[in-house]
Design a protein around this nucleic acid. Structure first.
Lengths: 187, 187
DNA sequence: GTTACTGTACCGAACGTTCGGTAGAATTGT
DNA sequence: ACAATTCTACCGAACGTTCGGTACAGTAAC
């Protein structure tokens, strides 16, 4: 399936990296062209809608990844701690131990905010609900579980900001490591 | 002292609002000109260093505000809960109940990251230390207190991201309301 | 030979920045 | 006191560059 190093999927991953690090306004077509190795014409062949379509594509990839993660989390055997642990492993990998920003946060700044607010909001809700589902499945009160879902997203996002700002991955690693217990802790 | 509605300090506040909402790349000189009511050339009269100097000025204002907040927090009478409560009130106002993003997070994206990484990092450290100082003063173990300082910043930043992403200030308000107790909670 | 793809050249618009200059307040010389 | 001068704040217009996007000829693949 994955033949060349410059497959479509690879390009989408490079786009993800660009948009999350530079934001919508900062990710210029020149940088995109340089990073993907594609000329402008090729970019507009693959993404006739231009920059907007590139972001949409990346968001779709992210949605699929999140949905897959959600399903896995619920299908995984074991208690809530184990399931959340698995989720944290994936998060740790996705964010490169806190060294890479989150696309969702990046898209909430600048011109992109109004364009993608809806999809970002839904993605966040799905994420929150995924965490809550695990906790509810473990017997937690639904209201508290959803609150803990919010807490999980908040902690991850905040830890990312701090890790970026301090240029030190330690806070992110600590939060990720503590996250399962933090979320399962009784009220 | 403050006579006209278009004083220098007002311009800095408008710059803060622009940079926090659009980021460095998204805050174009056209928008800045429109928001401040000053022509581009006039902007270069007040900030000969251009956009960079504008950000530097805003950062200086923020540093002063944070230092003032820190001093007040330690001088305020009462227990740690009361002090942190006061801090949260100010945060709630500064971030408009979570409806306005944080400049520090905005500056960590795009071209601005490398430019202002140092100052942003120091600002965050001061903030963390300010929280930790209150907790240490209340008898908390120093290591735990500094960890709680990180937690405070992480929770605020994460709540801001979520509030922006969901376009709903509720998560931010909840986190801010719970923050004093969250930070004081024994290990 | 058709289809998929790409490199080159180009476009109008917007970018950050600079220039030349104006109106008025403040300062100076006498 | 009045005129000459300097200073401060501001603006319109333009600079060169880069922006996102397009047109088209050419190549590669099947």
């Amino acid at each position: 399936m994955s033949k060349s190093a410059t497959s479509k999927q690879n390009h989408v991953l490079e786009l993800l990296d660009l948009f999350r690090q530079f934001g919508y306004d900062g990710a210029t077509l020149s940088k995109i062209s340089q990073s993907t190795g594609l000329g402008k014409a090729s970019l507009y062949h693959h993404f006739p809608g231009g920059k907007d379509e590139m972001v949409e594509t990346v968001l779709t990839t992210l949605e699929q990844g999140l949905q897959q993660l959600t399903l896995e989390a619920l299908q995984t055997e074991g208690d809530a701690l184990t399931r959340l642990q698995k989720m944290c492993d994936r998060l740790n990998k996705a964010y490169d131990s806190g060294q890479k920003p989150c696309l969702l946060a990046a898209l909430m700044l600048g011109s992109a905010k109004d364009m993608f607010q809806g999809r970002v909001s839904k993605l966040l809700q799905v994420w929150i609900e995924a965490i809550a589902a695990v906790l509810i499945d473990a017997g937690m009160d639904e209201t508290l579980a959803r609150q803990r879902g919010e807490d999980g997203v908040i902690l991850v996002q905040g830890a990312l900001i701090l890790a970026q700002g301090l240029d030190d991955p330690a806070p992110f690693r600590r939060i990720i490591q503590q996250l399962p217990e933090t979320l399962c802790r009784p009220a």
